Simulated scan of single mutants.
Amino acid sequence: MKKIVVVNGHPDKESFNGAIARSYIQSALDAGAEVRYIPIGELDFNPNLQYGYRKRMELEPDLVKALEDLKWSEHQVWIHPLWWLGMPAVMKGFFDRAFLPGITFKNNKEGLSEGLLKGRTGRIITTAGDLSLDAYEETYRSCGLVQLQKGILEYCGVSAVQSDFIGPVYELNEEDRKKWIEKIKGLAVADSGVC
């Protein structure tokens, strides 16, 4: 049974991102995977890394549980909207507070960083309100994806990270949204290892 954690970075659980997360989870469960869910917007934690790395802040219970779920997983699915070409503030705050030295990465004897989430694969599902994939890739060089995939997940050891882009969401009608949900269900089945 594949162990999958689904992380929703949208602060509004009734958003299209929430519908994507729910569809993915149900399809993965139906395919036989074990699934845990981290709705970042519903967690109780201070997203401000107040002292930087100078002084460690105590992790709130919701962050401790989220880290346990991430370490338990074999596959991580990160769902988020693209706001100002990046992730929502609460999602960035989650990384700032939870992805700390000694928890998700460490420096080895040569002073190089070593990811502590090795052995896990990932998928990033990004939604964008008024941006097309072409504009995101050509004009903005997929900057939000680079931050999350390269700067965070791969830095911390997650490998084989795949990405899916949905946008512009503002132009999607109900039928378009249903088609995307069906595609998400297919991704969940594939990620669960079902042929």
Rank of each mutant, 00 (worst) to 15 (best):
D191S: 11
I20T: 05
L63V: 02
G167Y: 01
L116F: 02
A19F: 07
P61F: 09
D191H: 06
G186Q: 12
G157R: 09
I40K: 05
C143N: 07
F45A: 05
G9V: 04
E138V: 12
S192E: 05
L67Q: 03
V146M: 13
I181P: 05
A128R: 08
G86N: 14
L116D: 01
V169C: 06
V5T: 15
G119D: 09
F105S: 03
M91N: 06
E154T: 12
G151A: 11
E174L: 13
R141N: 13
G115I: 03
G186M: 11
L131F: 06
Q26R: 15
E34D: 14
G167E: 04
D30S: 15
D96T: 07
L153I: 06
A31C: 06
G102E: 09
N173V: 12
A188R: 08
P81G: 11
E14R: 14
E74V: 09
V194G: 04
F95R: 04
F94T: 10
D176C: 04
R141W: 11
G193M: 10
G129A: 15
R177Y: 04
D69L: 05
G102F: 06
N173Q: 10
G115P: 03
Q147C: 03
F16G: 09
H10R: 01
G193L: 08
L82P: 02
A33H: 04
D130Q: 12
K65D: 12
K179F: 03
H10E: 01
G129L: 12
V5Y: 00
I4R: 01
E174H: 09
V77Y: 07
F105D: 01
H75V: 09
S27A: 15
K55G: 06
K183F: 13
V161P: 01
F16T: 05
R123N: 07
G9F: 01
G157T: 07
G86W: 07
I20Y: 02
K106I: 03
I166G: 00
Y170H: 12
V146E: 12
S163F: 11
T127N: 08
A135E: 13
L145T: 10
E137M: 13
E175Y: 11
D12L: 11
Q162L: 10
P39L: 07
F165Q: 01
A66N: 00
M87P: 04
P168C: 10
D134Q: 14
N107I: 07
L85E: 10
I25Q: 03
G41F: 06
D176K: 13
Q76C: 08
R120H: 04
V5Q: 00
A19L: 14
V194F: 04
S163V: 10
K178D: 14
Y170I: 12
G167C: 02
P61C: 08
R123H: 11
I40C: 11
N17L: 01
R141P: 00
I181G: 05
N173Y: 11
D96M: 10
M1F: 02
W84F: 14
P39S: 12
D176S: 11
I181L: 15
S113V: 15
D12W: 04
K109R: 12
L29F: 09
D191V: 02
G111I: 08
I124Q: 07
D130A: 14
Q149E: 15
P39K: 05
W78Q: 08
E58M: 10
F45E: 02
S27Y: 07
W83K: 08
T104W: 00
T126A: 14
E42Q: 14
K55C: 05
V6E: 03
V35C: 14
T139K: 15
L43D: 09
A31W: 03
A188L: 08
